Amino acid sequence: MTEATFTFRVDEALKNEFAAAAKARDRTGAQLLRDFMRDFVRQQQNSAEHDAWFRQRVQAGLDAAAAGDLVPNETVEAEAAEWRREIRRKLADSGS
């Protein structure tokens, strides 16, 4: 792993509070900042992957709709009504 130095400005009071908080956790500020950076990069990667997946699913839906592969409203409403009945039944059963 090639290492590089990352220098930035921060309010001195914040730096001191951060250093004290890091020390209280038996860590250095540098260790925590590296952890935070890794977590941030991982979150961004996960977000990008989810966004790509979501866009793919939306496009698949648009393609299906354009091809006429649609579910009639009556079918959707009937399935939703059945789902609501089942949820109400489960709630009633759990309340007994």
Score class of each variant (00 low, 15 high):
residue 39 D to R: 08
residue 67 A to F: 05
residue 24 A to Q: 12
residue 1 M to Y: 12
residue 71 V to H: 04
residue 25 R to P: 02
residue 85 R to N: 04
residue 40 F to V: 10
residue 31 Q to N: 10
residue 6 F to H: 15
residue 84 R to N: 10
residue 10 V to T: 15
residue 67 A to H: 08
residue 46 N to R: 15
residue 13 A to Q: 03
residue 4 A to L: 14
residue 38 R to P: 01
residue 65 A to H: 09
residue 29 G to H: 01
residue 48 A to T: 07
residue 24 A to W: 00
residue 54 F to G: 12
residue 25 R to L: 06
residue 61 G to V: 06
residue 44 Q to T: 05
residue 78 A to S: 04
residue 80 A to S: 08
residue 46 N to S: 10
residue 89 R to G: 05
residue 66 A to C: 06
residue 61 G to R: 08
residue 84 R to M: 14
residue 90 K to S: 03
residue 44 Q to C: 13
residue 5 T to E: 09
residue 76 V to Q: 01
residue 73 N to H: 12
residue 44 Q to R: 15
residue 24 A to I: 08
residue 78 A to N: 10
residue 32 L to M: 07
residue 33 L to C: 07
residue 24 A to F: 02
residue 91 L to Y: 04
residue 86 E to Y: 07
residue 2 T to M: 00
residue 62 L to D: 04
residue 80 A to H: 04
residue 44 Q to A: 14
residue 55 R to H: 02
residue 53 W to F: 12
residue 20 A to V: 08
residue 22 A to E: 03
residue 91 L to D: 00
residue 19 A to W: 02
residue 15 K to W: 03
residue 42 R to H: 14
residue 43 Q to W: 12
residue 82 E to W: 03
residue 65 A to T: 07
residue 92 A to R: 06
residue 94 S to E: 05
residue 7 T to Y: 08
residue 90 K to Q: 06
residue 5 T to D: 11
residue 53 W to Q: 11
residue 83 W to R: 14
residue 68 G to Q: 02
residue 89 R to V: 02
residue 58 V to R: 05
residue 16 N to R: 12
residue 44 Q to D: 11
residue 86 E to A: 10
residue 10 V to F: 13
